[in-house]
């Protein structure tokens, strides 16, 4: 049986929890063999393969996983604080280059103090720096230097989550009102 090109790298990256981005040659190969890989990950690991226009990744329904919660808190606070500063947070996340100092400033002066202080990944500058390292390894951000980074299109997955979360809440509220 012939395996697709970059097979080992594709499997290894996805199992490392990385987002495979559309700018990566592996993405084309993954997309062209979507059925094969979908089945491969489901049968071998009980993971689901998700392929979107700009990125691909695998999901597991493991409940003990805390990284996605930390990413959501990080992005949630960041969007809230950028909006508070009168910026268009979506434009900023899509196009701007972030500096660790800017992040520190936003997080240290945020009114979500309790949430930030109680989160080991985000509670201080050093931990946030390490956390950004994790995001970089997972291809959610692109580190341009030790302190500067931009977001990769993978951030859209989390924005989509926020949008659906809001829809769920709005729906829940209107059901309660009707009742």
């Amino acid at each position: 049986m012939d395996y697709p090109r970059y097979h080992r790298d594709i499997v290894s990256d996805l199992l490392d929890g990385k987002f495979v981005l559309a700018t990566d040659a592996k993405f084309v190969e993954l997309k062209n063999n979507a059925d094969f890989y979908g089945k491969f990950f489901k049968e071998s690991f009980d993971y689901y393969l998700v392929i979107k226009t700009e990125y691909a990744f695998i999901i597991s329904e493991e409940t003990m996983e805390t990284l996605s919660r930390d990413i959501c808190i990080f992005l949630g606070v960041l969007c809230y604080e950028l909006d508070k500063e009168g910026k268009n947070f979506l434009d900023e996340i899509q196009y701007a280059e972030f500096d660790l100092e800017i992040i520190d400033n936003l997080f240290d002066n945020s009114s979500y103090t309790d949430l930030i202080q109680n989160n080991n990944q985000l509670k201080n500058s050093d931990n946030r720096k390490q956390f950004l390292g994790t995001l970089n390894r997972r291809n959610i951000i692109d580190r341009n230097s030790d302190k500067k980074f931009t977001f990769t299109p993978a951030y859209r997955e989390f924005m989509e989550f926020a949008k659906n979360f809001a829809k769920g809440r709005l729906q829940q509220n209107s059901i309660e009102e009707e009742a």
Partner: peptide, 10 residues
């Protein structure tokens, strides 16, 4: 809608 989602989530 996204910000509503984040505020509710947080």
């Amino acid at each position: 809608l996204i910000l509503t989602g984040w505020i509710e989530f947080l």
